[in-house]
């Protein structure tokens, strides 16, 4: 896997996980750069269509957090 470009699409709830990702930055933690964050107003906003569409666009993984 190491030589492959991995793409993880993450849908983060504005009120918790998005803030947590902000704090990870403030705390200068390091993590692999394969994640692309899409901010959503609430994990209730998630529709299965978004997940399927992300896979269709070539995502290796989809992460919904809220």
């Amino acid at each position: 896997m190491a030589d492959k470009d991995i793409k993880i699409v993450s849908f983060l709830c504005n009120w918790c996980s998005y803030g947590a990702a902000d704090l990870a930055g403030v705390s200068r933690m390091e993590y692999p750069a394969d994640i692309r964050v899409i901010r959503i107003p609430c994990s209730g906003r998630m529709s299965p269509k978004f997940i399927l569409s992300a896979f269709r666009e070539g995502a290796d993984a989809v992460w919904v957090s809220g």
């Binding site: 990702a21 902000d22 704090l23 990870a24 930055g25 403030v26 200068r28 933690m29 390091e30 993590y31 750069a33 994640i35 692309r36 964050v37």
Partner: peptide
């Protein structure tokens, strides 16, 4: 779009990848 907390601060040892990620974002 957040290219600091979600990018430059957490990928500080990978400037190239971080630049690529910023472009994506």
């Amino acid at each position: 779009t957040n290219i600091r907390n979600h990018n430059s601060w957490v990928h500080k040892n990978n400037p190239e990848i971080a630049t690529q990620k910023a472009k994506d974002l």
